[in-house]
Design a binder for these strands. Structure first.
Lengths: 296, 296
DNA sequence: CGCGCACTATAAGTATTTCTTATATTATCG
DNA sequence: CGATAATATAAGAAATACTTATAGTGCGCG
């Protein structure tokens, strides 16, 4: 603390008091004081990491603002659900780079992107959740697709809900993580069918789920776009319609209202075109039974 | 400003003065005052975006720190850096499922995994950062690999640092996001070489970076494993040694000390074997100049 | 075009926060 | 065990941020 005071041109008690104040306000000890020299607690280490990142970002803001040029946005940060990562990262970035000096594309789960949009860490995202319960956002639908059943090759095809439930007698059900909207939707659907597959393996990426099925380690519920995204090297999985009532998901572009002009609408158009050509048409060829269920 | 004052339980002149103070300190106008109601300038808009993100992150830090707590582990939650997702998700899950009833495998950026490990949202991770400055963790090295330069097909091969810098005259430099350790290491290396590529495109996935290079949109610095992970459909990129001093990265399994017994060591062994067979041997075949630089 | 309205900006004073000085307390080392 | 070098505490000073009172400004309406 004495060295910190020196480097900040302050006195040592000022530092000590400031740290003590902060500890009191957040209710957590940041330093272990029963040793010399003082050591950070795990919480103190976390604070140090995140707060120094914060201070660094704060300093960068002033610099960035001074360099803002008119017209083009300085920065666009876009989130893309990982099930569209391979299909749309290129088209998305190519489009955005004509509208901003600095483009950041972040892949991941929609729940994280929704949170980041709310806290203004993203400017828009394409994902499974359209945040329809929150005011102040625009939504542009890109595609609706049905959930399908994926089984290892030569697995018997279940034709009823009872058959589906019986699959778990031979192979475990491979899950999407409950951290993903897709995982949540699937669990809710299974509960409606009174099916309760035992806990076992779960993944937060389409590849993780699909790869395990291809390896013969289990069966899963997924979507055609997720399967395309997995891009399995040994793509021999058996895909069939999901027995019982249909379950669908919609992929939507979400942005704050009144902030990006026509960019979200134009971007949606560009993404629809690209997705149709690169993913949907091939999927309809591979799974003709999808038919009208899979269109942008 | 009057509404902001009301919502912050302050008076309107306090807001007016604070904004004026800030404008004076950074030397930039944030509001256009010649119209009613007041409008944000472009700089003001950028400030609003970034400052609100900053405030949000600041609030989250306190919450995250309070939630740091010791708790019993009910399952194994493993983080896997996305550059190893395709290569190791299957082997990792297959191994862990023999040691736990419930296994969660989360793909993503090492920085998020490191944070998650610190806050006990993960039990272990495999990533680029070994958290060597933090006490209380065990580290098992899996592989060390050099960074390489990737260029569009038929691009002239840079043989010196000056050549490397000159690449940006024709094509933009495609970056890894600064949210990734890989991105940070590359930026630091370029600073050491006194190279400052203009801001342009950045991605947080190996696929994003590699796909843009394959499309001829730019050039990039990446690693052989990242390139393999991208698994490009049109894999025609030109890979060459990075001119100038070598830069390497190490992928490490990190777990808390004294908590998982021999599992981390055993898991490391299993991952090394799998990685060597599935990724490293093919890479050495494709890029013979890597030679001894790429071994588990 | 002038006036009224609803807002922001400024001046001066007050309240709060942050820092300093002086010194007490504590962990470590020889 | 005493000396040392650090941090913590108490009290007062300095700096910052806020309030009140009121001047100034852009817009819309008659």
């Amino acid at each position: 603390m004495a060295l910190a005071a020196k480097s900040l041109a302050m006195t040592q008690p000022a530092i000590s008091q400031a740290v003590a104040d902060l500890e009191q306000r957040i209710g957590v000890k940041l330093f272990a004081r029963s040793v010399r020299p003082l050591a950070l607690t795990p919480a103190g280490e976390l604070m140090r990491q995140r707060a120094s990142a914060l201070v660094s970002e704060a300093r960068q803001i002033a610099t960035a603002i001074r360099h803002t040029s008119r017209g083009r946005l300085a920065l666009i940060r876009a989130g893309l659900v990982d099930s569209l990562s391979r299909a749309l990262t290129g088209p998305l970035a190519s489009f955005l780079v004509t509208h901003a000096d600095h483009v950041s594309v972040q892949s991941g789960l929609t729940s994280a992107h929704a949170g980041a949009l709310l806290t203004r860490n993203l400017d828009l995202f394409i994902g499974v959740d359209d945040m329809s319960d929150v005011e102040g956002f625009d939504r542009h639908e890109i595609v609706t697709e049905p959930y399908i059943l994926v089984l290892p090759p030569r697995h018997k095809i279940p034709r009823s809900v009872a058959d589906l439930e019986a699959c778990a007698e031979k192979l475990p059900f491979i899950r999407y993580s409950a951290r993903s909207k897709t995982g949540i939707d699937i669990e809710r659907h299974l509960r409606r069918l009174n099916i309760d597959f035992p806990q076992g393996l779960e993944f937060d990426t389409p590849f993780g789920v699909s790869d395990m099925v291809a390896r013969g380690k289990g069966f899963a519920i997924t979507t055609p776009i997720c399967l395309a995204e997995a891009d399995l090297d040994n793509g021999d999985v058996r895909t069939v319609p999901l027995p019982g009532p249909t379950l669908k998901r919609t992929l939507t572009l979400v942005s704050r209202r009144h902030e990006l002009g026509t960019l979200p609408r134009d971007l949606t158009k560009a993404c629809k075109s690209s997705l149709e050509a690169s993913t949907l048409a091939p999927l309809r060829s591979a799974m003709p039974w999808l038919d009208e269920d899979l269109r942008a």
